[in-house]
Structure formats: C-alpha cells, structure tokens
C-alpha cells in the first residue's frame, strides 16, 4: 500500500436499503485499492434486507478505522432526501452534498412525511454547497432504474473531491471488473450520465 502522509477523504453514502449503497461502497473502495491507496468501508443498517435506513462509510487514505467521525465527511452522497437530512450531522462547513432529488416514504401507516421542498429548504439553510440530481430519470435513460446509485457516483466523481485518488476512467475499470459485461455497460452509461449531469 502506498502511504500518502495524512491524506484522508471521507465520503458518506446515505439512503434506503435496496438502493445499492453497499455496491457503491465496494466500487469506491476497490477503485482506491486498485490505485494503491488504502480504503476502509463500513455499512450500518438494521436487520432487514430492504426498506430501512442505510449508511455506508467510505474512508480513503491514512485511516485505521472504518467509521467517519461526526462532522468529518468531505462529501455526503444522498440517495434519498430524508436520509440526507438525518445524516447532516456528518457535515462540516466545507462538506459538499450530492443529492438525489427523491423522497421515499418510511413504511409506517398514516405517517406524515416532510415535503420535498421542505427537506431541500433545510438543506439550503445549512449554507453548504449542494447539487441536486434527478437520478431516476438518468438511470432509466441509462437502461435500468436500479442504476440510480451509479448515476450518483458519476456526480460525486465530477466534484473533484476524489481527484487525487481516482478519475472517471478508474471507476469504469472497477465496474468492468466487478460486473458481467451487459450489466457493466448499463452501469458505465449511468456513471457517465451522472458525471455530465
């Protein structure tokens, strides 16, 4: 492992079980390692397969433990807006937010959920730099609605937060390595659409 003294990047991926957050963590971690840089990732989620809150921590560089401390995220990649607001505690003044413009209702009968506009207002009022993406639209354009996660990854790469570690081409290589040809093709298209968004 190449040691880059003190370099440390913390990306937190938040959303709902089934949105492909863990796969994103694997893609980011694998890409870093392929570039000879240490990466640790962690998943926090509850007992079920689907539907609960999920956060995936991705730490790259000089790190010895997998959980990002509060207020130490360089970026929050939010695949869902309620989960994004829930996890704003990981942000500091320099944190960049890359957000999927989507709200998924928690599966509680008769629950009132905050409106999308309200959630965006809360996010705006933090004063943090953020970018909203319609990942579902781009994912469908790429060929499958389940590639929303990779669309968002493309948008993350575009921000340059990880520019010293990986570029779009590196992520493409990882996707080709991890998935069968046909699935990789759709995902690479999704990645590029997210990058250009």
């Amino acid at each position: 492992m190449e040691e880059r003294l003190n370099m440390e990047k913390n990306i937190i991926l938040v959303g709902v079980g089934g949105q492909g957050l863990i796969t994103l963590g694997r893609i980011l971690g694998t890409t870093a390692i392929n570039k000879g840089i240490k990466a640790l990732t962690a998943e926090t989620h509850g007992m079920a397969q689907r539907g609960g809150s999920v956060t995936v921590h991705v730490r790259i560089g000089d790190v010895e433990s997998p959980l990002i401390p509060m207020r130490r995220a360089d970026a929050i990649l939010g695949l869902e807006l309620i989960e994004t607001v829930r996890n704003l505690t990981y942000a500091n003044k320099k944190t960049i937010l890359i957000l999927n413009n989507r709200v998924i209702k928690p599966q509680i009968p008769k629950i009132k959920i905050p409106e999308t506009e309200k959630l965006i207002k809360i996010i705006k009022e933090t004063g943090l730099q953020f970018k909203l993406i319609d990942a579902l639209k781009l994912a469908i354009e790429a060929g499958s609605e389940i590639t929303q996660n990779v669309v968002m990854l493309g948008a993350l790469i575009k921000t340059n937060i990880l520019k010293d570690i990986m570029n779009l081409k590196d992520v493409e290589e990882t996707i080709k390595m991890m998935f069968p040809h046909r699935i990789a093709e759709i995902n690479i298209k999704a990645l590029k659409l997210g990058f250009e968004a």
Binding site: S53, N92, E125
Partner: peptide, 23 residues
C-alpha cells in the same frame, strides 16, 4: 476538537424514523 466544528441545521420537524420493513 470534534465538538467545536458544528454547522447550523434547522430541523423544523423531526426527521421521521425509518424502521426496516417487509418487502
């Protein structure tokens, strides 16, 4: 040092909990 780097977050409503659910 970690407790001093806070940002302003205005929660007008509490964020709803999201328990895991049957598929």
């Amino acid at each position: 040092p970690l407790i001093e780097e806070t940002i302003k977050i205005e929660y007008e409503d509490t964020v709803p909990i999201r328990p895991p659910t049957l598929c």
